[in-house]
Nucleic acid binder design. Structure first.
Lengths: 230, 230
DNA sequence: TTTCTAAAAATGTGATCACAAAAAGAGATT
DNA sequence: AATCTCTTTTTGTGATCACATTTTTAGAAA
């Protein structure tokens, strides 16, 4: 088994083997460490994570539940393929879900939280300037997550992360081919809307942000790549 | 362990023990067979399903991934509690997700499929007249599912089912207290919109349908119950 | 009766093993 | 060189067991 190309997360004490495996794999898929069609094996991952099949299989099963992996008929476990149509649906779903989540979060945001969001936005541009694509992607996700989870009952958040996971493998391809990182400017727009407590403007800004790019990558460029891969 | 109050699904040949456990439990939670706060044990369910801990634990882990169950800090496994605020968020999310899914499905619906939807809608009213709440609920879900899955890339469907699962336990309470079933009339409205291929009208009809009731139960009555339970 | 403490039971976790199915490989045949 | 067949290896599945933690129970003390 080839070593996993993952950021080496330390394993906190008290965390179960299963939780560790789940989070590690989830994070890897989320940031595009696995290409669509990649197949994984339970024993292989168990070895890579220095554990046994049982907790790894549980982690893989959970990942299938949220669309990050797929158990095929022949019992093979793969990272799902994405067609251009499916990609378009996922982006459309992101817009619906996240503009909704933003709208439902606005009323709960404190000044303090808004300042934290601004700080995260700054870190995104820092990472982009450094050219660290993965870090920029993670920071971008943190930006969105910070907004939506201001709502204490952010029931949409797990669903949004599910969509991010399904888009992850595409991002991996994008990172290999796209050199120019898209500098977000809709974020400032969103922040201004949050400051004004303007739900509709916030939802619109988030929608526009997603429509234009995914995590620093130009939307159209990614779509083009996808058509080539198909 | 008390016997499960589940519709006795036969286990198809070739289905794995894990799949059987997952589907059986999922269906049970979806139709309100478990009350919020109910705790389940791996060994208990394994015995009830005549299998062993391993596949059951996998099923439970998957169910937590989609919000149907919750692993607490002390490692207890429970059906999540729902606060009035959380309930409101879930309904709001249903509206956002399902009106979106309906909009994205309209273009794909064939005449034949629309007729099947009409047939399902008839069966809902039949079940309501018979007073079979669970059957009415299942038929109502089938009605919605049939619409959304007309889209060949219905990526929102798993997320929608996740929300249904999270609402399931509430429905169980509702079924115990609500005697009068709400007769849907927004379904006809939705069907007309589908026939006219009117995306906005379809989305609006679905949104109104959800706003007024969940699966045959009056929305306001359920919310009232929830406040009492809290 | 209430509260505290220790023993007992129950429960989640994870490693291991046997089994069956699938995939991969080796060799023969065309 | 391509295809078929049989063997070997790999892989997912599920039952079992040992272990640690948690919960429950029982009994003593206040």
């Amino acid at each position: 088994m080839k070593p996993l190309a993952l950021p080496p997360l330390g394993r906190p004490d008290g965390m179960t083997t299963h939780d560790y495996a789940f989070n590690r794999l989830r994070q890897a898929i989320m940031v595009g460490a696995f290409r669509p069609g990649t197949s994984v094996t339970i024993r292989g991952l168990a070895e890579a994570l220095e554990s046994s099949p049982t907790p790894v299989r549980e982690a893989l099963r959970q990942l299938t539940s949220i669309g990050a992996l797929q158990f095929l008929e022949n019992r093979r476990i793969v990272v799902p393929h994405i067609t251009p149509a499916r990609f378009a649906e996922l982006i459309s779903l992101r817009i619906a879900l996240e503009s909704h989540a933003a709208r439902r979060a606005v009323a709960h945001l404190s000044e303090r939280q808004i300042e934290q969001i601004v700080a995260i936005d700054d870190s995104i541009e820092t990472e982009i300037r450094k050219g660290d694509k993965v870090a920029a992607l993670i920071a971008n996700q943190a930006f969105h997550r910070m907004i939506y989870t201001a709502n204490p009952d952010a029931v949409a958040m797990p669903l949004i992360e599910s969509v991010w996971l399904q888009l992850g493998p595409i991002l991996g391809i994008a990172m290999e081919h796209v050199t120019e990182l898209y500098v977000v400017d809709r974020h400032r727009e969103a922040i201004e809307a949050l400051r004004r407590r303007d739900e509709e403007a916030a939802a619109d800004a988030i929608a526009a942000d997603i429509r234009e790019g995914i995590g620093g990558f130009d939307q159209q460029a990614v779509a083009r790549l996808l058509r080539l891969a198909a």
